[in-house]
């Protein structure tokens, strides 16, 4: 049987909804990964010593094993522990924590690369450690690491496709629904790939703007 892309027309709505959920999922997981990444970086740099080892171990586990395996663990493991959270939340949690480990690494390096004089100047003005971190150190570290953090977020968008395996109805899942009714995987996966490509371009454009703004304040 030849290719027939016209079958996609009937599934515009399904695919658009899938794309919408992919975008929502990506943004939510990105926010979580940045917030948690900052906390992990701070815990490793300034946290109590007893905290550093388990945090480092967990981060190493998240970075050293496949995301797909982690998603299975969160999905089945939470159920095993009797914790009942919606599958969408499980997906966001898995993606967010996975990329938080990578972001933490980047942010930690960014903080480490700042001159000691910045912290000293802030402290010598009477700002507390927390205030110096929040108003002087972190803004600069995040500005300096905007490109690699943006790279992680682009990766997150693509990896969000994996949550389809735990049944979240995002873009891949939407394509699979169309396939199950039409038996035309090639057309639907090409369509899904095209949508990812466009989302990717949009995200790169947005990140480019953020980076240029960050660059302007140097």
């Amino acid at each position: 049987m030849g290719l027939d892309f016209t079958v996609l027309a009937d599934y515009r709505g399904v695919l658009a909804l899938g794309a919408w959920w992919t975008a929502v999922l990506t943004l939510a997981a990105a926010a979580l990964s940045l917030g948690a990444g900052i906390l992990v970086a701070l815990a490793l740099l300034h946290g109590p010593r007893w905290l550093a080892l388990p945090v480092r171990g967990l981060a190493g586990l998240f970075m050293g094993t496949p995301l797909l395996l982690q998603l299975f663990l969160i999905y089945f493991g939470l159920a095993q522990l009797g914790i009942d959270i919606p599958v969408l939340a499980a997906g966001i949690l898995g993606l967010g924590l996975h990329f938080a480990a990578y972001n933490a690494e980047v942010i930690r390096a960014g903080i480490g690369a700042l001159e000691a004089g910045q912290a000293e100047a802030a402290r010598s003005l009477g700002l507390s450690r927390m205030q110096a971190m929040r108003h002087v150190i972190l803004p600069q570290a995040l500005r300096d690491t905007a490109p690699p953090l943006g790279g992680n977020m682009i990766a997150l968008l693509k990896e969000s496709s994996l949550v389809s395996v735990i049944g979240i109805t995002e873009l891949v899942h939407a394509a699979q629904r169309g396939i199950s009714e039409t038996y035309r995987p090639f057309e639907f996966y090409i369509a899904a790939a095209a949508v990812y490509y466009v989302l990717n371009l949009l995200m790169e454009a947005a990140l480019g703007r953020i980076e240029r703004r960050a660059e302007a304040s140097r």
Binding site: S161, L162, V172, F186, A192, A193
Partner: peptide
């Protein structure tokens, strides 16, 4: 620009 999973499925 596209997910590896989709490439694999394709």
């Amino acid at each position: 620009g596209t997910p590896c999973l989709i490439q694999l499925f394709l």
